[in-house]
Design a binder for these strands. Structure first.
Lengths: 233, 233
DNA sequence: CAGTGGTCTAGACCACCCT
DNA sequence: GGGTGGTCTAGACCACTGC
């Protein structure tokens, strides 16, 4: 350690990671207590605490009261996926974004959807189909159902110029969501919208969204052939 | 707010989220300063700081020195994906896990791989193919290349009973990785290993791993038909 | 019961960056 | 230049949990 004036929590965090990678503290090892580490590094316990808390969040160590901090055994690593709005994703590729509404109809909530999102009252849903283009080439086909009861004035939105994703984000900020990724074959309609042969493997993302425990929307986003979702961790 | 003895950072965090969802603080709004919030909630600034820092990590607010804290405009939401070892994934489905080594050969690093993982010296790589089963049904096909230079004694491992993933995790703990998810058609060999017709859409995950900036391994994991990766956020 | 992490406080200094 | 968040300190009390 450099003999700087003050030790930062990042110094401690990095040093702990180094010792784990060095095998000085192999997997399963119980680390010294916060007090001991604070003494070793010559800093306050709060500083050690912050460093170790961050490592615990990353899944690198496990912490328990009384038993202490130990190096994690099965490193269930956590990847942070940044899920942005389609427009942003397209623009980050330096491509021109274009949005187009395909269809919009109000309907009774179908039973499968009712079960899927856990809706008790069989109310109405707004059913939307949209296309997103990058440089005028198909990028994503979006099929969405919105729970009218949860967002009543969705009926007044025409979704001609603004996509439902962005509209909802402004309307229902910071909701909870559950996502599922999978590979699906292009159906007849998907093959037309995304300009690929029927049966082509396509990357799909499904998402159900709740606002204060009330289901708001379910969306199925199917990407163009060859799309990859990437992240670092 | 309940008139409890002390205000926790979670109280503040939840209250701030509530005010954002209430539209009391619409998107783009500049929040009161930490000092002002501390005064309002009757707590120390550090407590407010921790609450707001957590919200900033979640992407709900943006913080900048001098300009202050404001409600995020484009909520690039972050999903935390827990990427576990295959065995763990299978066992969490209450299925019996079985592993099988398909092939193992030492070879010169092919140029495409050299370019992909950013390897400067054209050294040797260990090329492995493995199968993972859940209740004796194909679950995942794994094709992997390991940089021998980075992990020399990988040559002594036979990978007959322990898969390369678990071996590497014990060997090279907590490395950095880059992952990409996509949908691919089943190739001739994939169709045999995963028992599906050729061309079937399959979910695939590719991962490159570095340990202290040195490339360690590149792996391509292809899942059985219909596999879904799920998460909440 | 006692040890460990979890959290809060009151105060301080610093670094960044907008005006 | 000055205001804001970023961080550290020294001390305190609390909550959980293994012994």
């Amino acid at each position: 350690m450099a003999d700087r004036k003050t030790i930062s929590y990042q110094d401690i965090r990095d040093e702990v990671v180094a010792r784990i990678q060095n095998r000085r503290w192999p997997q399963g090892t119980v680390l010294p207590t916060e007090l001991e580490l604070a003494a070793e590094f010559g800093c306050a316990r709060a500083t050690v605490n912050r460093a170790l808390r961050e490592l615990a969040e990353r899944g690198i160590v496990d912490r328990k009261r009384k038993s202490g901090t130990r190096v994690a055994l099965s490193p269930t690593k956590q990847a942070k996926l940044e899920i942005a709005v389609v427009r942003q994703t397209v623009e980050e590729m330096n491509a021109a974004y274009r949005y187009s509404l395909v269809s919009r109809d109000l309907m009774a909530c179908p039973p499968w959807l009712q079960a899927k999102i856990g809706l008790t009252d069989p109310g109405q849903v707004l059913h939307l189909c949209c296309m997103h283009f990058a440089d005028d080439r198909p990028f994503q086909f979006e099929e969405r159902w919105i729970n009218v009861q949860a967002v009543p004035h969705v009926i007044e939105a025409d979704f001609l110029s603004v996509g439902p994703n962005e509209w909802l984000l402004a309307e229902v900020p910071f909701s909870d969501a559950e996502v599922a990724f999978s590979a699906v074959p292009a159906s007849a309609s998907l093959s037309e919208f995304l300009a690929v042969p029927t049966g082509t493997p396509l990357f799909q993302m499904e998402r159900t969204t709740w606002f204060r425990s009330e289901p708001v929307t379910f969306v199925r986003m199917t990407f163009h052939q060859g799309y990859q979702m990437r992240t670092r961790y």
